[in-house]
């Protein structure tokens, strides 16, 4: 890949920084401060294609958990001098602030998808990033469904494929790292978890992880949270 792509700005890997504009910019991380809003707008101006990669950039990340909490309280608890902490009250995806051309989901992202993305951009084809459920990958691999055969709650049926369906292959339910699939039905999946013995609170928390702030998972987690409160 090194011959075909010139890396212009990647401070973790290469000290030299080339000036913009850039053909393609890959953006990691969510937007949590005022400075970042201005910075992402500048990045957008300098970039031909803007691709967000990872759960933080595409849905706000695990730090979006604070979106359901009082950030002031966190900063007062964690930091000795909270007055120096300037942060937005919510952690939000890049696409809330600037138009995004393409998303690579995941926490972490799939290396294979990243290579395919770059290859596709170089060759001029549409990146083959699936938008269907993780279940497709389990079944192609021959992995036995952990939910049906072992009663383990699994977010796979609501989560976008691409990770390689690793967790179910190790007898774990999917955690939803790749965020919601194209047409998720978290309400029906969560109802099934409850029928399997989970509480509404458990279900709410299951949807509220790396991609908890994505629209579909967020709505589900909030609904099940409401359901958990006895009336």
């Amino acid at each position: 890949m090194a011959d075909a792509v010139e890396i212009a700005y990647f401070v973790e890997a290469r000290r030299q920084v080339l000036p913009g504009p850039y053909d393609v910019t890959l953006v990691e991380g969510s937007i949590t401060t005022e400075e970042e809003i201005e910075r992402i707008k500048e990045v957008r101006r300098q970039s031909g294609l803007l691709v967000t990669i990872g759960a933080c950039a595409t849905s706000g990340g695990i730090q979006a958990l604070r979106n359901w909490a009082d950030v002031g309280e966190f900063t007062r608890t964690v930091y000795a001098s909270p007055e120096y902490i300037h942060t937005l009250d919510r952690s939000r995806p890049v696409s809330d602030f600037v138009p995004v051309d393409f998303e690579l989901r995941g926490c972490p992202i799939s290396k294979q998808q990243l290579v395919d993305l770059v290859t596709s951009l170089l060759i001029g084809r549409k990146p083959s990033v699936p938008e269907h459920a993780v279940c497709n990958e389990c079944k192609r691999h021959g992995t036995v469904c952990v939910m049906v055969a072992q009663g383990i709650p699994c977010l796979g049926p609501a989560t976008q494929a691409g990770c390689g369906a690793i967790c179910p292959a190790y007898n774990r339910g999917c955690y939803g790292c790749f965020g919601p699939m194209e047409l998720p039905n978290p309400a029906a999946l969560g109802a099934r978890f409850i029928a399997m013995g989970q509480t509404a609170r458990d279900v709410s928390r299951a949807f509220r992880s790396f991609n908890g702030y994505s629209a579909a998972f967020r709505a589900a987690s909030e609904q099940f949270e409401k359901d958990a409160i006895p009336r």
Partner: peptide, 10 residues
């Protein structure tokens, strides 16, 4: 009720 997850077809 359907999850559109494709398991039935697979």
């Amino acid at each position: 009720r359907c999850l559109s997850c494709a398991n039935c077809t697979m």
